[in-house]
Amino acid sequence: MLETIACWLFGIGLAFDVLGCIGLVRLPDVYNRAQASTKCVTLGTAMLLVATALFGVGGNWAMFVKAIICALFLLLTSPVGAHAICRGAYISGVPLAREVSVEDAFVDRARTIRAEHRKQAADIQEAEREKT
């Protein structure tokens, strides 16, 4: 019974992973691609790990615990990674494809952060020039 469920989970998880990869190719820009890859690939891979855990039920409890811990860490870290990539992309000036609207407050915020970074880089260069 458990093995049947695990096999189905393997299948569905792989299907979601494939869809995430197709999205990576078909969607237009970095933000939409991050959406497809985080959602589909996170859930798909978590399903694969849960299926692995189900195979461990009964005999191999170590496998069960390890797979569940891996799934939890995946669910926690993958959105954080997508957030960091998209924030970095916007601040370094990647435009949105087919954009409908971007909040003005966010445009301003990105501009101030960019200016701050530029100032920091200039300060570092200045300091190095003074050293040499």
Binding site: R26, P28, N32, R98, E99, F106
Partner: peptide
């Protein structure tokens, strides 16, 4: 590919 993307607050 029906999308209407943007950034909202």
């Amino acid at each position: 590919v029906p999308i209407r993307p943007g950034i909202v607050k």
